[in-house]
Amino acid sequence: MESANLQQLKRGTLEMILLTFIADGRCRYGYAILNELERAGGAFFQAPKAGSVYPVLYRMEEKGWIVTDPAHIRQKQYHITAKGKEALKQMREEWSGYTAAVTHLLEGGQ
């Protein structure tokens, strides 16, 4: 059973992770993303569920960060938009800054 803290951390970073997957072309649809999270996510992302991935994908689509490719009728495929690239760039910068700051604080702030 995951702690509430870990769940919160995962919720906060899932958008960035999924957006990275789609931007890299590593995986472009729900099922592949679930598999990739399970395969490469280690202990923290073991057994990811559709309930945590699909709502994030829909939210990102609503925000205009990703779009589906109409050419793939059989299997819906997501692609990152310019807006999504910009959002991802900002998220990554914030993440780097944030983790560096937290690490610095945890190590005594010297």
């Binding site: 569920k49 559709a50 309930g51 945590s52 709502p55």
Partner: peptide, 11 residues
Amino acid sequence: LLGNAQELAQS
């Protein structure tokens, strides 16, 4: 892999 139907719907 997809998860429990109830939990999925609630998300």
